[in-house]
Computed example of a mutant assay.
Amino acid sequence: MTNENEPLVLRADRADGLTTLTLNRPGQFNSLSKAMLTALQAELDRIAADESRRVVVIAGAGKAFCAGHDLKEMRGNHEKAFMQALFRQCGELMLTIQRMPQPVIARVQGIATAAGCQLVSMCDLAVAADVAKFAVSGINVGLFCSTPAVGLARNLGRKAALEMLLTGEFIDALEAQRRGLVNRVVPADALEAEVDRLAATILAKSAVAIRAGKGMFYKQLEMDIGQAYDYAAEVMACNMMSEDAAEGIDAFMQKRAPAYVGR
């Protein structure tokens, strides 16, 4: 169980630009209390403003990745205003993950339920241990997982998302991969190494292209196809004017590794 003096979110920065944020309430299965949401939001805001941070990993301490909202806290504050503020705060956190320039990878070692499953769905990429399980289980206690449904519906097909939401049943990691919730599934003892490999592949690319590309990807999803092509063409033209694009193309033609400058 976490010592009360320990931070709710552990941060580890590496020299290569990778930052790992670990949810640190293992005794409560890393549930998203208001304090946990506040701590995670603060770290993500700091990272988003720091160009030296290139990739973010969100992990969980202990057996669970994240069991969703803190039900004990919710029952102890049974007022509509509290619930509205809590779900708005959680929604803002999820949008921060999508809007920040760095790719965010979920490293899922255990169960991810309700808002924990939502957290996985809102990360840009996700790697899961083969023992991990996923559910949006609010329906089992009389609560439809409406806010988790937003991220889930944008990862899975409608029928697959609704099956999870209406039944509350768990799916295993391989099924989550088949449905599009996670990218890769590996044995538990290979999880950290697989996340490192994925992060290293991204870290080797142009920071300029990654920042522009992530923002473009999500923005164009909300447009009709004509607007999306117009917007994507403008982003790509601007990207082509960067020093990194010039260096990358020259390196390709000269058959050498690029030396990106990050501008």
Score class of each variant (00 low, 15 high):
59 A>S: 09
131 V>G: 10
66 C>M: 09
64 A>N: 11
115 A>G: 03
139 I>W: 02
60 G>N: 05
151 G>M: 11
159 K>L: 15
136 V>I: 15
66 C>G: 09
100 M>E: 07
99 R>D: 08
98 Q>K: 15
80 K>H: 14
163 E>S: 12
92 E>G: 04
157 G>S: 09
64 A>I: 12
77 N>M: 02
134 F>W: 01
124 D>Q: 05
105 I>P: 03
72 K>D: 08
152 L>C: 02
132 A>T: 01
57 V>H: 03
98 Q>M: 13
93 L>K: 00
111 I>D: 12
158 R>D: 13
107 R>W: 04
130 D>M: 04
67 A>Q: 06
147 T>M: 14
123 C>Y: 03
154 R>S: 12
113 T>R: 14
141 V>P: 02
68 G>V: 14
93 L>F: 00
112 A>N: 00
157 G>A: 09
162 L>P: 02
147 T>I: 15
89 Q>H: 06
133 K>W: 05
82 F>Q: 05
133 K>S: 11
62 G>L: 06
66 C>W: 07
114 A>I: 09
95 L>D: 10
73 E>M: 01
111 I>N: 11
135 A>Y: 00
59 A>T: 04
84 Q>F: 08
117 C>P: 06
158 R>L: 15
131 V>I: 10
159 K>P: 05
132 A>W: 02
101 P>F: 05
69 H>D: 14
131 V>M: 07
104 V>N: 06
135 A>Q: 01
104 V>K: 05
154 R>K: 13
152 L>F: 01
153 A>R: 15
74 M>Y: 03
121 S>Y: 04
126 A>L: 04
151 G>N: 11
85 A>M: 05
156 L>P: 00
103 P>S: 09
93 L>W: 00
106 A>G: 04
94 M>I: 01
64 A>Y: 10
138 G>Y: 04
125 L>H: 14
87 F>K: 09
132 A>G: 02
72 K>F: 08
111 I>E: 13
163 E>D: 13
56 V>G: 00
91 G>L: 05
103 P>G: 09
136 V>N: 11
75 R>V: 12
116 G>R: 00
93 L>E: 00
72 K>Y: 06
95 L>R: 15
156 L>C: 03
117 C>F: 11
55 V>D: 00
149 A>E: 06
129 A>D: 02
97 I>S: 02
113 T>C: 13
104 V>I: 09
59 A>F: 02
111 I>A: 14
142 G>K: 07
62 G>T: 08
100 M>R: 08
159 K>W: 13
158 R>K: 13
145 C>D: 15
131 V>L: 07
84 Q>S: 11
94 M>H: 03
155 N>G: 07
135 A>R: 02
96 T>I: 01
154 R>F: 13
107 R>T: 04
74 M>R: 08
98 Q>W: 09
149 A>K: 08
133 K>R: 13
86 L>M: 06
91 G>R: 07
117 C>W: 06
147 T>R: 14
64 A>F: 07
150 V>N: 04
112 A>H: 01
135 A>T: 01
53 R>H: 11
53 R>T: 13
56 V>L: 02
100 M>T: 10
